[in-house]
Design a binder for these strands. Structure first.
Length: 583
RNA sequence: CGGGGAGUAGCGCAGCUUGGUUAGCGCGCAUGCUUUGGGAGCAUGAGGCCGCGGGUUCGAAUCCCGCCUCCCCGACCA
């Protein structure tokens, strides 16, 4: 491969685009890899297209290695398939919808479970045909409420999606494991720093599910890692370790105190510490009770439940929702409080909840034998030493409390800290949701039909390109890992003599040896411009043919380390070919 | 959907408060000469529905009203 900058469709920008915030957005635009066509929609120019194909090639190789077979399904899909699974409505505004000339509804595919399920149903009908894994690399469309960060979160993006079909749960597990292993190989080969976190299954309706997150401060997903192990998880999936239960015997009796003007935890703690009770209190000694209402998806009746958590912790609604999944969760409105007169805002305690038969769920740290300061269900009154298991018994536990840096890791090793990541891959065990929707069965050896079970697995190919840049750049530009770089070598000819001719000759010889070459053969462009462009473009190895040519030497540069060395012109082709071959 | 910001040449911006020549600067682009190891110099030049619509005025990029779009934060999504 030989690309000549004298006629390459490429224009680099000296300044950051005004609308760019994150490094990958700035650099991919400045380097002429992509151009914005519409909000969240990007064109891929020659160098960007090469990078995208390089990433795709790695994904393709690893998918083929686990027996995946590549297909290409349409992006334009009729409404009926998505009606069968309710996603025409479930996906809501995120779905790009359109109509044909007859007024029939279509959509642009955000993902393809339906069509893949139908495809397999149409072709396969015997247990002997399974398992099978199909995949495609294709543009996906999602009308995001707010596209942002360039190609990191677009409305049109490239995705590898694959679907496994198995006869039984063991088969599904094998397919899932194979995909997981393939993803590990893909992201390792791409040189990404990433973590695998347990994900909540969410709207996809699956069971086992893991996300691959590329570690980057610009990432949209917050996850937690442990200082003591390789534990990593989505904040929503972190379970709070419960302390051991303690004996209730010998604990002081619960006593009600008059605590005027203490509607907040902070004011309560201050009041108690000034009250001369002979000990000091912190927010962590208080039990904060909040009320939410829940209902089954699509249901009409709300159930009000109480949630108790240590007073020093904020409520994390996402964790609460994940913990109560699949129930919908909403905060109480004034009308709800009016319907339950025994709820005294600011002074709600377990007593009123339990005696009025409202379900009461508590943080896992609230175990038998722990004593709390909490509301007395009476304005301006709190109870001290209300003991769990003696004075009240919750109906269960719930993960509602925020996770904080320094919390113990669920696996017992080390403490947690939060970090940010870009979701670049996702593996799901879908189970039979889609097979049920379309009655995808295979005839078993006993002549009876069996419902097929599925997995669905995605890699955001275009997002991976941005994630690589997020992780691999410096103040001068991109630093491409060789396996995805638009070229192996950037040969730069600079000077008014025969340098450019020599550069072209060297470039051709390298290309003949199978090296992918970009050569800067532009005339009348000053060396500074060429060097700056080279650093922005980020090709791993540079060969400068310039002022040293008179002495028969050229310069070798390494983009990542900045190392420079001079070598003889005669040796340059062999040397560079060797550098490329061994890296 | 809530909050904030912005629409002026291909890109990045000034001008607007206080209306008044032919709307300006940097980069880029074209031509010529010079220059050639770190975003060169000089000269000449092309390129604008100043987001759209209406209004005020002798006169609007500038003031007023309405609308549209884009960007950022949040919500949402994954």
């Amino acid at each position: 491969m030989l690309l000549r900058m004298s006629n390459l469709f490429l224009r680099t920008l000296r300044e950051d685009p005004a609308d760019a915030e994150v490094p990958s957005h700035k650099l991919l635009v400045r380097g002429g890899f992509v151009r914005r066509a519409a909000p969240g929609v990007y064109s891929w120019l020659p160098l960007g297209k090469i990078v995208l194909e390089n990433v795709s090639a790695v994904v393709r190789e690893e998918m083929n290695r686990i027996g995946g077979q590549e297909v290409l399904l349409p992006a334009l899909l009729p409404r009926e398939y998505y009606e069968a699974t309710d996603r025409w409505t479930e996906y809501g505004d995120t779905l790009f919808r359109l109509q044909d000339r007859k007024g029939a509804d279509y959509l642009l595919g955000p993902t393809h479970e339906e069509l893949f399920t139908l495809l397999v149903k149409g072709e396969y009908s015997s247990y002997k045909d399974f398992p099978v894994t199909l995949y495609q690399i294709q543009e996906k469309f999602r009308d995001e409420a707010r596209p942002r960060a360039g190609i990191l979160r677009g409305r049109e993006f490239h995705m590898k999606d694959s679907y496994s079909f198995d006869i039984d749960d063991e088969g599904l597990q094998r397919s899932y494991d194979a995909h997981r292993a393939a993803y590990v190989r893909v992201f390792d080969r791409l040189g990404l720093e990433y973590v695998v976190v347990k994900a909540t299954s969410g709207a996809m309706g699956g069971s086992a599910s893991e996300e691959f997150l590329a570690v980057a401060p610009s990432g949209e997903d917050t996850f937690v890692r442990s200082t003591g192990s390789d534990y990593a998880a989505n904040v929503e999936a972190v379970s709070t370790p419960a302390p051991a239960a303690r004996p209730v015997e010998g604990l002081p009796e619960a006593r009600k105190h008059h605590t005027p003007d203490t509607p907040t935890i902070e004011s309560l703690v201050r009041f108690l510490n000034d009250a001369g009770l002979g000990r000091s209190f912190t927010a962590a000694d208080t039990l904060k009770n909040i009320l939410v209402k829940v209902r089954r998806p699509g249901g009409t009746d709300w159930e009000v439940i109480g949630v108790g958590l240590p007073g020093d912790r904020e409520v994390d609604m996402k964790r609460l929702e994940a913990s109560l999944d699949p129930f919908e969760v909403a905060l109480l409105e004034e009308a709800d409080f009016a319907a339950y007169p025994f709820l005294v805002k600011g002074y709600i305690g377990p007593g009123a909840l339990l005696s009025n038969k409202l379900r009461y769920l508590v943080d896992p740290r609230v175990v038998e034998g722990t004593a709390w300061v909490t509301g007395a269900d009476e304005a301006d009154h709190h109870v001290v030493d209300l003991v769990c298991g003696r004075d009240f018994t919750p109906d269960g536990t719930v993960e509602a409390a925020e996770v904080r840096d320094g919390d113990p890791s669920p696996d017992g090793d080390g403490t947690l800290y939060t970090a940010r990541g870009i979701e670049i891959g996702h593996v799901f065990q879908l189970g039979r949701k889609y097979a049920d929707a379309f009655s995808l069965d295979a005839l078993g050896p006993d002549g009876k039909p069996r419902r097929v079970t599925m997995g669905s697995y995605g890699i955001g190919v275009s997002r991976v390109v941005a994630a690589i840049v997020e992780q691999s750049h410096d103040d001068k530009g991109i630093v491409w890992p060789r396996q995805v770089a638009p070229a192996d070598v950037h040969v730069v000819g600079t000077g008014k003599g025969e340098q450019i001719e020599v550069a072209l000759r060297v470039a051709r010889e390298l290309a003949d040896r199978g090296v992918r070459v970009l050569v800067d053969d532009r005339k009348g462009v000053s060396p500074g411009v060429k060097f700056t462009d080279a650093e922005l473009l980020g090709i791993p190895t540079g060969v400068i043919i310039g002022r040293g040519l008179a002495d028969g030497v050229v310069e070798l540069r390494d983009r990542a380390t900045g190392e420079r060395s001079e070598i003889a012109l005669d040796a340059v082709v062999d040397t560079v070919a060797a550098v490329v071959a061994e890296s």
